[in-house]
Write a protein that binds this DNA or RNA. Sequence first.
DNA 1: ACCTGAACACCGTTCAAGT
DNA 2: ACCTGAACACCGTTCAAGT
Lengths: 164, 164
Amino acid sequence: MAEIVDGARLRLADGGYEALSVAALARDLGVAQNAIYWYFPTKDHLFVAAVEGILHDILARKPRKGTCLDEVLWFAERLNEFQDLRITMRERARTSEVVAAFEADVVALFRVMLVGALRDHVDGDRLEDTADAVMALCEGVLIRTLSRAQRRHLIRFGFERLVG
Amino acid sequence: MAEIVDGARLRLADGGYEALSVAALARDLGVAQNAIYWYFPTKDHLFVAAVEGILHDILARKPRKGTCLDEVLWFAERLNEFQDLRITMRERARTSEVVAAFEADVVALFRVMLVGALRDHVDGDRLEDTADAVMALCEGVLIRTLSRAQRRHLIRFGFERLVG
DNA sequence: ACCTGAACACCGTTCAAGT
DNA sequence: ACCTGAACACCGTTCAAGT
């Protein structure tokens, strides 16, 4: 089972969802396809397990303490590493219930992280909306193909007006 | 050719990219698959042509004149209609050059529209950054599955701080 | 120029069967 | 419980051939 998920993670990290093939993965592991279908009833179940692992590793690096903006920029960089999979997750969530449920969890997690970073710097009654707006800002910036410098500039620009 | 694109648009609007099958489309039109490959060298070329038509129709409805916020909210609602295809476009752009080039055009178009809406209400030296930030706000809000009311509330909240 | 026919190498999923 | 073997109904793309 760990072998399967590891293989899936490799393929996913390398070539995205379309490189994550149950048939090809089984071929490489030297097992029948149904060996995979025993643990994961659907390709999307396997997808979720793989993404879960990848995301866990991305978020494992502890944020260094800094200003509120620093924490948001750190958050945005982690989100950026996750961006390709985040788009695929969104795409698959439309069709697949497992992915949709998983996506809801991930979004909730991101929200909690942002609320935590903003808690001490924003009035309580504006905290939720501000977190949502900053998260939207980050996701909206990241969906575009920009350089790291451009990303940081835009997020800083938006942050100053939304929070500062 | 028009028949092909119309069929593609129907399938795309209904079931997304995975419902857009060259084989199935040819079957329904009663032609050989190569009849489609004559006009579109790749499935993604057909995808681009179909999305182009859909987006054109979405943007055809003229924006009613109103406050700056009204224009942004109108923009966001059009973008919301386009949201599913926008995600698919982003996903495909990673693999397909045609889609990547088309995406760049679409993003540039959106940017021009927003700059136009903000021109009279924002200082010239902040116009570009503000447009980028508002666009990010909109895209980031739309990527989440919210009600129309929630969407409008969040965009209004962000708009007031980024522009107002 | 425009299209047909037929094949290729893949897919995800499923059914029946083994141990 | 865990896995194999073999099939099913699809794909996108390509090659050769027709008109």
